[in-house]
């Protein structure tokens, strides 16, 4: 076997391997894989925020009782809304994959409604909190880190919910106009479920602990 033949044989062997580019090691299309990679990097940002919150909470000699400051019924309702919208989003993906665009669009708009209700509740919660005198660097409870953690964590999450609603709106309008793609719905769904995943940790560690 000549040198060039050996090189060609080696190239074929690499291309045929799972990591050589000849096969798909993740068995996912390009868009979906890129969304997963984005979510992983975004998750690291939230991990850093939650770790910073944990640090501040741990070293702070005292911490306000959240149940006395926030309306836990409202927070519970927000969690219920987000979990329900996530379930409806999963149904939208299911409808899209079974080639039922009309049903998928309906579920998408229901998911958007859930997101808007969540954002409305968050706006109410923020205005109430600010009305009580809380600012980014100070608050009436004497622990400045408390309001800083609240505004940064819930604000960053709220920003994700807002972009998620816009993303879903674009996907829903495109699907309603006939420019329908089940992969597009699935990718948007991944982003929306990620928002739910982040809220699960914020809800447990910031509001309940």
């Amino acid at each position: 076997m000549s040198h060039s033949e050996a090189l060609a044989a080696e190239q074929d062997r690499v291309l045929a391997s799972a990591w050589g580019g000849g096969k798909s090691p993740f068995a996912a299309n390009w868009g979906k894989l890129m969304m997963w990679l984005f979510l992983i990097s975004d998750a690291l940002t939230f991990v850093a925020l939650i770790a910073a919150y944990g640090f501040m909470r741990y070293v702070s000699p005292r911490w306000p009782a959240q149940a006395e400051i926030f309306d836990m019924r409202l927070i519970g309702f927000m969690t219920f809304t987000l979990i329900s919208s996530s379930a409806v989003m999963a149904m939208a993906v299911g409808a899209a994959r079974t080639h039922n665009p009309k049903l998928a669009v309906r579920f998408l708009f229901l998911t958007i409604l859930g997101g808007l209700i969540f954002l409305g509740c968050q706006a109410y919660e923020w205005s109430h909190f600010i009305g009580e005198g809380a600012r980014l660097w100070s608050n009436p409870w004497g622990v400045p880190q408390f309001s800083a953690c609240f505004f940064v964590m819930t604000g960053f999450h709220g920003f994700h919910v807002t972009t998620g609603v816009i993303f879903l709106l674009v996907v829903a309008l495109r699907a309603a106009a006939g420019r329908y793609s089940d992969e597009g719905v699935e990718i948007a769904g991944l982003y929306w479920h990620f928002i739910d995943v982040v809220w699960v940790f914020i809800f447990a560690l910031f509001y309940l602990l």
């Binding site: 993740f26 068995a27 996912a28 990620f194 739910d196 699960v200």
Partner: peptide, 15 residues
């Protein structure tokens, strides 16, 4: 959420 809503249960182990 990850297993059922995000369908990770049905994805390849690498992912």
């Amino acid at each position: 959420i990850a297993a059922y809503f995000m369908h990770l249960r049905f994805e390849k182990l690498n992912l």
